[in-house]
């Protein structure tokens, strides 16, 4: 076999090389996120199918027009949800900075940016809690839709069912992301990663957190914009 020794050098899978050049946990996190992307994709495509098969649909600018502490009749479509979107984008940025600091073995940088990320996550969850509560008081919930279609015809409960299911599923992801980030913060403060000699765990938590932001990009567009 020694005569074929020239062949493997061109092939990443020929052995003697790490074909992905990332550690096991990170590959598995990517695989998990891919499966999660299919879950969210199935939800959103199902929503799209129902929306395409229905004659009328509520106008998001009428449904999501409220703002906390605003006077009763105020008409502010898109304002509140854009604040939620920016909160999530900024928390994603602080997460990248935390990962970056981890690569440079900068413990205080990791701690600082993780705390900002956690604050962003909690702020987003608070916004969503307020919005759900407000919609509930307007009479919207699973199986109950007080809104009319854009053209003034009666609307089905599909709208609220999909809205609460999908934003709820996303909100649960944000919640678990915050928990994961808090665990990362505790581990960092306990010098766990300093002892290991690397902050790769922060990168995996970061992947999950960015995925949550990524899903929101789709949810935000599908429910609030179009």
């Amino acid at each position: 076999m020694a005569t074929t020794a020239t062949a493997p050098t061109t092939n990443a899978w020929g052995g003697g090389k790490s074909p992905f050049n990332v550690e096991y946990g990170k590959v598995m996190m990517w695989y998990f996120l891919m499966s999660d992307a299919f879950t969210f994709g199935a939800f959103l495509i199902s929503y799209g199918t129902i929306r395409f098969s229905t004659n009328g649909w509520p106008d998001p600018n009428e449904v999501f027009k409220s703002f906390p502490f605003a006077p009763e009749g105020m008409h502010a479509p898109l304002v509140f949800v854009s604040i939620m979107t920016f909160i999530l984008i900024i928390s994603s940025v602080t997460m990248v900075l935390a990962v970056q600091a981890g690569k440079n073995m900068d413990k205080s940088g990791v701690v600082k940016n993780l705390i900002w990320t956690i604050i962003g996550g909690i702020a987003f969850l608070s916004c969503q809690a307020w919005e759900w509560n407000h919609l509930l008081h307007e009479g919207a919930w699973w199986g109950s839709n007080p809104f009319l279609n854009h053209d003034g015809t009666a609307s089905s409960t599909n709208f609220t069912n999909y809205f609460f299911t999908i934003t709820g599923f996303h909100g649960f992801h944000v919640f678990s992301g915050v928990i994961i980030n808090i665990i990362m913060l505790i581990m960092t403060l306990a010098d766990k990663f300093e002892q290991r000699g690397h902050y790769l765990m922060i990168e995996k938590a970061g992947l999950y957190w960015h995925f949550v932001d990524l899903v929101w990009v789709f949810v935000f567009t599908c429910f609030y914009l179009i």
Binding site: F20, N21, W30, V96
Partner: peptide, 16 residues
């Protein structure tokens, strides 16, 4: 942009 840069996928190996 989120996947390529924040999740760093663009800088991984092509296999991944």
């Amino acid at each position: 942009y989120i996947v390529a840069y924040f999740m760093h996928l663009k800088h991984e190996l092509k296999n991944l």
